[in-house]
Every structure is written in C-alpha cells, then in structure tokens.
Design a protein around this nucleic acid. Structure first.
Lengths: 395, 395
DNA sequence: ACTCACATTTGTAGCGCTATAAACTGCGCC
DNA sequence: GGCGCAGTTTATAGCGCTACAAATGTGAGT
C-alpha cells in the first residue's frame, strides 16, 4: 500500500488534481456537491497531503524552530511549552533545537535552519555576540528572546531585568532587610541576564540608601541548584552574613534554601530569599519561594507575533519588545513578615492574598504555615497570567 | 537576493546540476579537481540545499517527531532533551509535539504526523487505548515509550515499574518502615504507570509480610506538586498515619515533603519519602529526595534505535524493550538511618556513599546534614548513567 | 437567443532536488 | 587502431503539490 497521492484521489473521484487540491486547502469556489464527492474519496483512501510537496510548491513549510540552550532547565521547558502552544494555535509545527548554550551549538542552529525547512526561527542566544549573530543571519526570519545582545536590525523580546531586580530588592528592603546578597552570577564572563539583574540590584540598593558591597555577590560554579548550594555554602562557612538574598534564578534559590537550612538559618526568619523565573517548583519548596515571574506566556506570544510579522515583511526595522513581570511573594520573602511586627509596605507594593485551596489543610496544621502565595503587582508591562493549559500525570 | 539553488551553483561552476548534487551529498566518484571547483562555487554563493526538495525527491525528511504530554513536567523535558541529543547525533532533526495527555491531542498528533514531514515518531501515549492507537496508526514508523498499553505489533520502550516499585518498598522496609503509603495515583481512571507502581507496592508489602491497606493509598487531584500537597495534607488532617511514603512521581514527593513539614512531621524521622523519576530537583529539596531513577538516557537511545530499525524494515515484529533503573538514596529515605541504630539492610541493597563535593560545606554546618546521595544498585537491566551534556545558565 | 459577469473546474508548468541510466572520459591491452 | 572497462559527468524524468491562467459552466439581463 503505497502512499496515497492527490492524483489517486482525483482518479477515484473522477476529477482533476487541482479540484482535489482546492478541496484540501479549503478554497472558496468549490461547489458543495463537488466538495462532498472529493471528501468522500479522500476519506475512503485515507489521503494525507504531503507537506514536502506543498512546501516545495509554496515556498513555505508551516514549521517554526525554537532554539534554546537546554530543555532541562525549567524556564526553557516552560518557554518551549508556551511557544509550542501558540505556534500550534496558529497552524505551525515546532522544530526544537538545543544549542547547549555554546557558540558552536548556536552557530550550527543558525546555519542549518536556513535549509528551507523552517519558515522562521526564535532563538535564545547565550554565547554568541551580536556581531557574530549578524554574520550568521541570512534570510530566514529570526526573532531573539532573552536579554542577550542581538543584532540591532533584528527583533527581540525580553522582560525588563533591571527594573524587575530593582523591584525585588525593594521588596526585600520593605520587609526590613539591609544586608542583601546576590547569588548565582557567573564567575568568568558575566552573562547578560546576570549583568542586568546585578545592575537592578545595585540600583535597588542605592534607592534604599544601602551600600553596594562586592563581598555580597556570590557567584556559582555550575549553573544548577547544586552548584549554587555549594557556592553559597562555602560563602556562608567563610563568614558571609546576609539577611536577604536575590538569586539569579530559581535554581540558584533552591540551592540557597538548602545551603541555608542545612546550616540552621531560618528562611525567611534569618534570611529572606527571592528567586527568578517563577518555575512551577517555586510554589512547592519549603518554604515556598518568592520569585520574579516573567510573563512567559506573553513572551512566547509576542515572539510569535513578531516572527509572523517579519515573515510577512522581511525588510521592516527591528523591534524591541518588553514583556511584563511580577513578583510572586511566597513564604521565602513574604510581603509582610508574619513572625514580627508588620513593617510598612512599600507604597508601590500591594499585598493580595490569593485563595489557594490549601487553607483547610493549613488551618488544621500542627504548626501554622504562612500563606501560600502573595502577589505584588508590578508597574511594568501588563501581565497576562499563564493559564493552566491542561495535561496531567507524569512518566 | 533570491534563494540560491543547485542550478545557480551549477551555472556558476560551469557544470551540470547533478555534479553539484553529487558534491553536496558527498558522492564518491567525483574527481578532486571537480569537487574543489564546485565547492568554491557553493561557498561563493552561500548555497544551502533545500530540504523540501530533497525530501520530495528522496521520500525521506531526516526529521523525527517526539510527542509527549507536557514539556513542563521535568521528566518529559529530560526525555525530550535526551532524545534531541541522540537524534541530532544521528543526523535527524526533532519536531516536538505536545499532546496535553488528552485523547484529542494524541489523536491529532498521530493523524497529522503522517503528513510525510517526519520519517518516524516516538510517542508517549497517556490517554488512548491500545486499540485506538492501532486504529490511528498508518505507515509512519512509530515507537512507544512509557508503560501505557500500545498495539502489540508496535515497538515499545519502558522501565520495569513493578520491579522498581517493589525495590523502593524494600528500601523503605529495610530502614524500618511498616506503615507505608502510596501517594499520587489518579482518582477516577488509574493510569498505567500508577497501576504498575501500585502493583509493585503491593508485592513489596507482601514480600515484607505487611498487609495491604486501601486507606494508605492517597490519590491526588491535579497531577502536580500542589495537588499532591493538598491531597496528602487533607489525608493527614483526617488522621492518616504513615511512616513511609512511596510517591507516584517526584512532583508528588515534593508536594508530600511540604505537606508533611508544614504539619511538623520530620522527614525522614517521622516519615520516609521516596519519589519517582529522579528529576534534577530531587537532589536539592530539603531534605533531598530519594527517588526511583529510570535510565532516561537509555530510554531515549533505545527508542531511537528501535525507530531507525523499524524505518529500515517496517514489517518486523513489534518489540518490547525494558531499560534499567536504580534507586537513588538521598536524605528523605537514606539507605541507613543516621538518627537511630542502623537496621540490617536488605540483602539486595548495597549502600554506596558517593562523593558529592558538598562535604566541606556540610562539615562546618551549624547543624549536621545527612549525606547528599547514597545509591543502591538495582538488579534490573544495566544502567548507563546520564552524562552531563553541558549547557549552563538559565533564562 | 445571445451576451456578459461570475463561479467553478481544469491543464500546465514548475518548486529544488535526486534516481536512474546513459554518455563520456581516459587508459591499458590485444 | 579498436575495444573493454572503471571512473566521471551529465540529461532526463519525476517526487507531490500549488500558482496561474485558461476553459468551462451558469444564470441574469436584454
């Protein structure tokens, strides 16, 4: 049983291939009778259009590519999820490419994806400079996501890292923290996100009248939770004293929680901790993690929009889009401190206790827990919450 | 600047298109001089072969598809990562498809991916029955991963859930647990993984001379950590008493840790907890999580091998491959109990303290922590550890 | 009846590539 | 010189689909 082709259907239905093609593509000017007849033949033969043929004829493939450093990082998995959803909704399939965050990986993606198999590419670069990216760019429409520098003529979507870090710092200050560290940046070459977040951290300190102290910057080795745990652990053992910690990402924050708790520091009692990315786990650590939440859904949606628009008009000038964020206050740095006299909240911060459904469990707990989730609004771009898109179960 | 085509290169080099094609594909019988000349033209023009054209001519696309329920679940992200790596290593690109774990999602994937755009599909079904899957199957080579039932004529790769659950239970028994619960299965329709894991749980109880008690099965609502936390929380508040807990997956285990700790139960002191999947976070929770670790790398590799073999010979009989697993013992259920007189370990369990690099940090801790990671070997299929494949940084 | 406007249907010519086999090279050998 | 042979190069015919334009049908208006 060979593949069923347009011609087979046409023969079966006794019409021309073009008519079948018209039916398949939903061309308007096909009479109902004809449409019905052709559809019957399609169903009988189980015809499926061959996308390679279509692609060759139209010059479009309806496939987009997303290139991220590593799918195993929850943030990228979330991004891929969102992008897959929005792409599918617009009739595109998704080719996934991992760059490994290396120059070769990013180069190979940009080089190979020009092969006419994808209509456009969304990439989160991490290793290549803007100049290199520009050199590799050809005529496949391209959108950059994330904060790393990109060619000025290209489109980019990112959140405002500086402002968000500044807000996170204000949050810590508002709950009385004065010795606030930054955990998780890179030792040798500062990544762009770290750079921007540290910049916001500095501005936040400044605005609060606190002094910047290089000793409170704790780099990590490996870019994972274990690396952060070890780095912070060593620093604490060496005498680091902080009462607040802004972490480069939630992975670092999770490592920080461990390092702190293993040493008997209470979180947030002794040290308040804020992470970044608001990964799903942030709600389930002990204590749950206050985190800077980028509007990942908006990020994915805007990236797709920019990409489609660029596919439409490759010559349009490059645009830079900023998506919203918010600070999701949970137990590791609650908006108010339940264990002490409430401090005056910062004027720009609005505490808003959300119903979480866990109140029953908590109310009868042997020891009381703090609220599951408190949100503070952000003054950045509008935030559209990531709706739960279904799916259950695991392996 | 239009796309450069084979013809352009041929004209430029003054040869036929076939010769250019031969050079591009690395055909043997091309003289060195000719190869050089053509290559020069290719480089000058920046020619990239159009994969749609190639695909149409050859009937193959060098694209494989992976369909999983939801990329946001760490297990699937890991699987996608592994599969992307091995596919790339074999010269294939990866199309990613999320089914949402719904019948429609799985149906649409199976239906659409027959469109000649992919050479083969690896799918982890979750909602469809074997009969439905068989009905949807056409001639695109297909490999199933995971435990869910699949058509008997198809290939499948999975770990041995029953044996692994039995081992996990033996582990809990070996450290003195007698009232062991199972957390996280589905309420209405039991998923196949849950079913098998509960079966292993029962066998483990039996083998240990313990009675199965329906009351110790705690289903969860939402298939995430929060759902598990709420479910276990309610059960505990209603009087559930356990000293050990086998969780359906690590997400459930993470939720369990929170539910237990918020109620003042010590883990593992009062309740030992074992998760499933050994996601990256398992090493960084407090306490770190003992978990059943499937050999995901082997899973991905074997799935690809089966797929390639089936692409080679679509008529070969369906095969069922079992990949290895191990129980990674961490703090939530250590191989020995550091807080009490060591119990006699089960004969099949070999404790093996691994160097983790965190000993320095821990040795100077204000309060001592238990070892980071203890591994118990499994008697199941050979385990090939998941090598770290690089990549660093986050958002 | 005839025309015109419009809707519907159909031939034809590629899209860029490769499979196939035919057409060339040389070159050694009878 | 002619022949066979292995190594190269090339002409041609599609792969399955769609763009385009041309051809056909249909009904209203005159």
């Amino acid at each position: 049983m060979d593949r069923v082709t347009l011609r087979d259907v046409a023969t079966r239905a006794g019409v021309s291939v073009m008519t079948v093609s018209n039916v398949v593509r939903g061309y308007r000017h096909v009479s109902p009778r004809m449409r019905e007849r052709v559809q019957a033949a399609i169903d009988e033969l189980g015809y499926r259009p061959n996308l390679s043929g279509r692609s060759l004829a139209t010059g479009r493939s309806s496939v987009l590519a997303l290139a991220v450093p590593d799918l195993r990082r929850p943030y990228f998995a979330e991004l891929a999820h969102v992008f897959a959803r929005v792409s599918t909704a617009r009739g595109y399939r998704l080719l996934l490419e991992e760059t490994g965050g290396t120059p070769e990986g990013e180069r190979s993606v940009l080089r190979d994806l020009e092969a006419g198999i994808v209509d456009g590419v969304v990439i989160q670069p991490q290793a290549l400079t803007a100049a290199e990216l520009e050199g590799l760019r050809r005529d496949t429409p391209l959108v950059f996501v994330g904060e790393d520098p990109r060619p000025p003529t290209a489109d980019q979507v990112a959140m405002d890292n500086v402002v968000a870090a500044e807000e996170a710092l204000a949050h810590l200050v508002a709950i009385g923290r004065r010795r606030i560290g930054f955990l998780g940046h890179e030792i040798d070459s500062l990544s762009r996100p770290s750079e921007l977040r540290i910049e916001g951290y500095r501005r936040g300190l400044e605005r609060a009248g606190l002094l910047f102290d290089e000793a409170l910057l704790v780099p990590r080795g490996q870019g994972d939770a274990v690396g952060a745990e070890q780095a912070l652990g060593s620093a604490l053992d060496a005498g680091l004293a902080v009462d607040g910690l802004l972490c480069r990402d939630d992975l670092a924050a999770v490592g920080a929680l461990r390092a702190l708790q293993l040493r008997g520091f209470a979180v947030p009692g002794d040290v308040a901790v804020i992470g970044w990315d608001d990964i799903e786990f942030a709600a389930s650590t002990v204590p749950s993690l206050t985190s800077v939440a980028p509007d990942t859904r908006a990020l994915g949606e805007r990236a797709l929009e920019l990409l489609l628009e660029r596919m439409d008009d490759p010559e349009r000038p490059g645009r830079q889009v900023t998506v919203g964020h918010r600070i999701v206050a949970r137990e590791s740095a609650p908006a108010r401190q339940p264990w002490s006299v409430p401090t005056e909240p910062s004027s720009s911060v609005i505490a808003d206790r959300t119903a979480s459904g866990s109140s029953t469990a908590e109310s009868s707990a042997r020891r009381s827990a703090t609220g599951r989730e408190l949100r503070t609004t952000s003054h950045a771009a509008t935030f559209s919450p990531v709706a739960d898109l279904g799916a259950s179960g695991s392996s």
